[in-house]
């Protein structure tokens, strides 16, 4: 895994310029620490070796990366346009979080499923979290960086520090692939503070341990109408 990046500050400089640049590792312009004031990052990975007593046929590693940032909209009203900060902060987070995922999961080609999430501190609106993960400034870039095509599934919540959030994932190029519907539980012990937002990106290198519930191609036709015609029901 990569050594820690250094330098933690923000700035007034436009984030888009920095997001487009390829920063030197560990430099002050490392994405995630220029436009967003990142207090901490947390990487959590799971490798399942056995499930229900047997090793998976296709072993997968799941990872979720969290970045804790100051909520840039504290004290603003519900009519406030969120776009100016989104355009600066979200691309930098998308780059920083996906870089960590790619590093933790052994390269972008190894990643098969993805998801995203936000935990908003109690002084903010859910809309603030949504602003950082639901616009193209995060979602399109995360999809591009992870070489996906699917819409990215998500979870969001407002809560106190230590809130646990289950982050859903599905296949990055074929969202309906049932074997890849999976989740990872994410939690930062001391975040978000009331004035913070935790932004998360998750990914997995494979399916569930023993995926065996078919797929759209193998399903029989099941409908409410058919069910009502079935005398045994």
């Amino acid at each position: 895994m990569s050594p820690p990046a250094t330098a933690a500050r923000v700035g007034t400089e436009p984030g888009r310029d920095t997001a487009d640049a390829t920063p030197e590792p560990g430099s002050a312009r490392t994405p995630g620490r220029v436009a967003a004031r990142v207090r901490k990052t947390v990487l959590y990975c799971e490798d399942i070796l056995t499930e229900n007593g047997t090793g998976p046929a296709l072993p997968a590693r799941q990872a979720v990366v969290a970045a804790v940032i100051e909520n840039p909209w504290l004290g603003t009203g519900p009519a406030r346009d969120l776009a100016p900060e989104v355009e600066v902060i979200a691309p930098v987070l998308a780059k920083a979080l996906t870089d960590r995922l790619i590093d933790a999961l052994g390269g972008v080609d190894a990643i098969e499923a993805f998801g995203k999430a936000a935990i908003v501190g109690t002084a903010g609106e859910i809309e603030h979290g949504g602003a950082l993960i639901h616009t193209p400034w995060f979602g399109n870039l995360m999809r591009d960086f992870l070489q996906g095509e699917s819409i990215i599934c998500f979870a969001d919540v407002r809560g106190d520090a230590g809130e646990t959030l289950v982050v859903p994932m599905w296949h990055k190029t074929a969202a309906a692939t049932r074997s890849h519907y999976q989740t990872i539980s994410a939690r930062v012990s001391d975040a978000p503070r009331a004035g913070e937002i935790v932004v998360l990106a998750a990914a997995s290198t494979g399916p569930r341990p023993h995926a065996r519930i078919g797929d759209r191609k193998t399903d029989p036709t099941v409908s409410a109408e058919n069910l009502e015609r079935d005398p045994s029901w």
Partner: peptide
Amino acid sequence: VTLVEEIHL
């Protein structure tokens, strides 16, 4: 399970 925390501030 692997957990890595980095504190920047």
